[in-house]
Computed example of a mutant assay.
Amino acid sequence: MTGPTSGLLWAMDCAVAALLVVWHARGLLPRQPEPDPASPGADSKPPYSKLATWPFTASCVLLAALCQLAGVVGVPAHRPLWISWGSAVLVLVAVDARTTWLPRRLTWWCLGQVGVAIGLAAWWARDPGALAGAALGGAATGALFWLVWRLGAGLGFGDVRLALGLGALSGAVSAEFWFASLLGASVVGALWGLIWTALRGRGAPFAYGPALWSGPWLAQLWTVFG
Score class of each variant (00 low, 15 high):
58 A>L: 15
76 P>T: 03
137 G>L: 06
165 G>A: 05
215 G>V: 09
90 L>Q: 11
195 I>G: 06
149 W>S: 15
42 A>P: 01
210 P>A: 05
216 P>K: 02
209 G>N: 02
94 A>F: 11
161 R>S: 13
43 D>V: 08
63 L>W: 14
141 T>C: 14
126 R>Q: 14
27 G>L: 01
18 A>C: 15
167 G>A: 04
224 V>F: 15
103 P>C: 10
106 L>H: 11
178 W>N: 00
153 A>T: 13
97 A>Q: 05
133 G>W: 00
113 Q>N: 13
48 Y>Q: 09
97 A>S: 14
96 D>P: 11
13 D>Q: 11
175 A>D: 12
73 V>K: 03
194 L>Y: 10
106 L>I: 05
121 A>V: 08
190 A>C: 14
98 R>Y: 13
191 L>G: 09
97 A>R: 14
181 S>C: 05
4 P>H: 00
137 G>R: 06
138 G>N: 10
137 G>S: 12
65 A>G: 14
185 A>K: 00
160 V>H: 03
174 S>Q: 06
156 G>E: 10
116 V>H: 14
6 S>D: 03
36 D>E: 07
17 A>I: 09
39 S>V: 07
184 G>L: 01
98 R>D: 07
182 L>C: 05
76 P>L: 15
215 G>P: 00
177 F>C: 10
130 A>I: 01
196 W>G: 01
21 V>W: 08
133 G>D: 00
26 R>L: 13
84 S>Y: 11
143 A>I: 14
163 A>P: 03
33 P>W: 00
50 K>V: 11
182 L>I: 09
111 L>Q: 11
198 A>H: 11
109 W>G: 08
135 A>W: 15
96 D>A: 09
60 C>L: 10
